[in-house]
Each structure stands twice: as structure tokens, then as C-alpha cells.
Computed example of a mutant assay.
Amino acid sequence: MQERIKEVADRIKELRNILGISIDDMSGYLKVGREKYLRYENGEEDIPASVLYEISRKLGVEMSILLTGETPRMHYFTVTRKGKGVSVERRKQYKYQSLAANFINKKAEPFIVTVDPNKTEVQTNSHPGQEFNYILEGSLKLIIRDNEIVLNEGDSIYFDSSCEHAMVALNGRPAKFLAIIM
């Protein structure tokens, strides 16, 4: 996995340099410190999916280019077979599979997300835009600002993803959900 993180980081660094975007401009745009951004770009720290999405927007490329090094080719449709989505490691307790990596000019990023039961401290994140989550398996506690919402299989939520949020799998079992980031 570390090799894959380094490959993504190298693509980001190369595109940023080609486009003449400074490290300070990129870290400012992402609202992360310069040192943290450099850890991302040097492959020393995994890049959260939400940050990767914002990096792709700043660089003017599809997120899948950063993930795979390949340009999306599909204009009319794309099919992702069960379990074959492009994997995105976000945090140790979250596993993402991109469901439309090969579609060009997407208006949203759909993922299947698996949240493993977590014994460590819950870490919140935020990113520009909106997010829709539909629970496929298990139970999930979604924390948005000071609110805790328990979602079970078949439940869904739509929220402003610029608000600090986090997900916790409940009952000692993984939770799996469809996430669409817009």
C-alpha cells in the first residue's frame, strides 16, 4: 500500500509543478499546513479521499488520474463490477472503492465505503460540497458537528460536508455504505 501512496503523491507533485502551482498555494487552497501538505506530496502520509478530490479540482484533472495514472475514457457510461472499484485508502478505519473512476467529467464522486469497528479516537474531517450516504450493511453512527445520528441498513443521509463529520461502525461489525460526494 505504501508504494501506491507514493505513486499518487508523485503524480500530484508532477502535475502541480507542470501547472506552476506553489506548495503554499496548494496547502492554502486545501486549508492544511505546509508541512502536512508536504507529507502528502512526499508520500509520507496517506491522502484522505476528500483532500484528494480537492487536489484533483485544483489541478483540473479527474481524481482517477491521480489514483491510477490513466485518463478516464468513458463519455456515456462506465460499469464497475462488484468489488472491482479503484481502491482509495483514506484512514485506517475507512476503505473506499471508487465506482466511476473511468468516467470523464463527473459531477460527483461515488464510492462504496467500508468502516471497520474502531477502538481508537474518532477523527473528524470536512471537505467542500455535499455528501449523500446510503447504508448497505451494518449500523453506522455519523457525527456531524454536535449531532450523533445512528443509521441502519436502508437508511440514508444527505449533508453539508463542509461541516466537521466522522463515521463510527457500531455493534463491533463493519458498516458498508454508498457515498456520493458532490
Rank of each mutant, 00 (worst) to 15 (best):
V86M: 04
K119A: 13
T120N: 12
E109S: 08
N152G: 07
S98L: 02
E131G: 01
P110Y: 02
F103C: 02
V115M: 01
P128H: 03
Y134C: 02
V115Y: 05
Q93W: 12
A100Q: 05
K107G: 04
V113K: 06
V113P: 01
I135Q: 03
D155H: 07
H127D: 01
L151E: 02
P128D: 06
S156I: 10
R90K: 15
Q93M: 14
Q130K: 10
V150W: 04
S98A: 02
V86K: 03
E148H: 13
V150H: 06
L136T: 07
S156Q: 10
V88I: 10
V113M: 09
V122E: 10
L140K: 03
E131K: 05
G138E: 11
G129L: 05
E121V: 13
V115C: 02
V150T: 09
Y96R: 08
K106P: 02
K119V: 15
E153K: 13
K106G: 01
G138M: 06
H127E: 00
S126Y: 14
I144R: 08
G154D: 09
T120R: 15
Y94V: 03
G138H: 09
T120M: 15
L151Q: 03
N118L: 13
R91V: 07
E131F: 01
S156C: 11
V150A: 03
N105P: 02
D155F: 06
I149K: 10
P110A: 07
E137Q: 01
I104H: 01
E153Y: 12
K107Q: 09
K106E: 01
G154K: 12
N125R: 15
V86C: 02
S139I: 15
V113Q: 02
G154I: 11
R145N: 12
F132L: 04
L136H: 05
V122L: 13
Q130W: 12
R91Y: 07
F111W: 10
F111K: 08
T124K: 14
